[in-house]
Amino acid sequence: MNEVSLWTGFWPFTPERFAIWVGAILTLCIYSFLYRDNPFYKFAEHLLVGVSAGYWALIYWNANIVGQLLVPVLRGGVLLPLVPGVLGLLMFTRFFPRFAWISRYAIAFYVGGYAGLAIPSYMQARVLAQVHAAMAPTVSITAALLLIGLICSLLYFFFSREHKGVLGGASRIGIWFLMVGFGASFGYTVMARVSLLIGRMQFLFRDWLGLIR
């Protein structure tokens, strides 16, 4: 353990130290919710939402409107960005019920374009490649387990026949495989949530208090 007191962690009072103190106090405000809801928690929560909204609005304005519309059109003399620009403006017609139908053109363009972009690559990456990998002939215990697990899990979702006899047995095995899968997901979720807590504790005890290295 470092022999560093709270005071030496506070001094000299640089902008970085100030930021760490603000972060530490806000972290404690958020964690105070674990005891019960209180004004400190509400303050920190509202501050987070407000700062996030401001940050995102600024970033999106600069990246989208300035970077991809105003600069290319006004400085570069490129007119093509005006097309998505106008389509974007059409979305605002939704505020006026009489003209709201015009926004459908922008939505249709967006949905059509995105579907064209996503569907072929989605099919390739998430269906064909996965099916190909599942069908690849390999002889190992893992491959056998994968095959049994896949077939039995799929049979569990086959609802056109009553689950009894061979189908019932296979679907019960499928449930076991599904439960193992859910258990693994739960374990990973616990790890993710604990990681967030660990990150905050590292911040409090290392960056703020200087009690650990």
Partner: peptide
């Protein structure tokens, strides 16, 4: 990837993607 999403990506690992 984050732990909470990791189980979704192991199939990509198995398929070689």
């Amino acid at each position: 990837v984050t732990a909470v999403s990791a189980p979704n990506f192991y199939p990509y690992m198995e398929s070689g993607q």
